[in-house]
Design a protein around this nucleic acid. Structure first.
Lengths: 220, 220
DNA sequence: ATTAATTTTTAAGTTGACTTAAAAAAGTTT
DNA sequence: AAACTTTTTTAAGTCAACTTAAAAATTAAT
């Protein structure tokens, strides 16, 4: 399976994994930086390979086979993140970029060696759970993307699933970091904006960012 | 630059680095497992990119730019070999295969981190020299491929630049390993065969194998 | 030095992963 | 519910990296 296919399947998995809004070709295309047309083509191709279910104009859904493939790639990505984080003094952003490349060129054998070396960790440095060799996540994850959070509720940030520098800089500037409290004041469904209050400041996030920040409800 | 280009340039470098016999497209194609036609096409393309000199029916020669690129890839390959060898209990054959993939997805930054972690090693586990970050090899290498060795002379094996399992198995079977003595009894120029004596046994190698075994003359 | 064998090149075609532009369907607004 | 906007799909085309088969050139052999 090619790198393009692996990235496509992974993008769907990442999008679906936290009940995100939209898993149609156009949205996946946006995440991958390709045209919608290319994504539609790819979706048809992967349906023929039994990696996902495709019906015109409907949401894309991974098959069991597709999920397994996605988990395998996600596992390698997160193992590399954890490994590079432990071994070298590099920024999380740089580590993410390296893992994004290395994940596609890593045998199951090497992944297992890395996992063993790290003592089979359950989470990567972002707080994302690492699937085991069977593609199963054994930890319970109750976090949701901010885009899915409920108005008036208060949450704690559990992770930032960053893709780019801009996002990181924005988070740093607005005190959006692991462990901090945020209260969702408004969800604008039409414009897909999320308004929140952090440290008495009000922040407005568009969907690009609100789907990258995961939070847990405060139990009181 | 694509992986295909990187592998092509690397194959020429590896072929040229020890005054091997033939650097025409057909031979490079053979090493890469592609057709001669594809190799000719690629050679023309890379000539246009100023990575090599191409003239019909002549040997391919890397330009300075091409050499620099090759050294960068070779550096990453050998650093990965050294790193994986140190970190994990894996066979040299498996390590080689991983390095073959990882080398193309490794930033200069990560390569430097790996190098520093290892204390900037000069050689990989096969005995191959590791170029520095500027693409220079600072150690002196007097070894030659067995295909280039001189009749009646006795040598010590300095490294096996293996690509495949078959080769490894052959070497193990015939006591061709690092540090062992071999005497070249005959070079058959026409058939490109090399005859040697190891431990009083006579071995006949074809060009596929004799170009993968590097030896140093015994100074007496 | 011809002939024969081998290798390289050219030519034409395939496949995967894209693109842009237009057509079709879906979703939204009033 | 009609009109407008947005999204998805279709259609046609590009580009890189291959392939096979035939033609051209080189190399080797008698």
């Amino acid at each position: 399976m090619s790198i393009a296919i692996e990235n496509f399947v992974k993008a769907i998995y990442n999008n679906n994994s936290h009940n995100a809004r939209n898993t149609k070709p156009g949205n996946i295309a946006k995440k991958l930086g390709i045209s919608s047309a290319a994504a539609t083509d790819m979706a048809k191709k992967l349906a023929a390979k039994d990696l996902l279910h495709y019906e015109k104009y409907q949401e894309l859904q991974l098959t069991e086979k597709g999920k397994k493939m996605a988990m395998n790639i996600v596992r390698k990505h997160r193992l590399w993140e954890a490994f590079l984080f432990k071994m070298f003094d590099m920024s999380l952003h740089d580590i993410h970029k390296e893992a994004e490349l290395l994940e596609h060129q890593t045998s199951d054998l090497l992944a297992e060696k890395i996992s063993a070396y790290l003592g089979h960790p359950k989470f990567d440095p972002h707080g994302d759970p690492i699937p085991n060799a069977d593609g199963k996540i054994t930890t319970v994850d109750t976090s949701v993307a901010l885009s899915q959070a409920i108005e008036t509720k208060t949450y704690i940030i559990s992770r930032l699933t960053s893709d780019d520098k801009e996002f990181f800089e924005f988070c740093a500037q607005h005190k959006l970091k692991y462990g901090n409290e945020v209260t969702v004041t408004k969800q604008f469904k039409k414009n897909k904006m999320t308004e929140l209050s952090v440290n008495k400041n009000t922040i407005l996030l568009n969907e690009d960012f609100s789907t990258l920040i995961y939070v847990n409800e405060i139990n009181q």
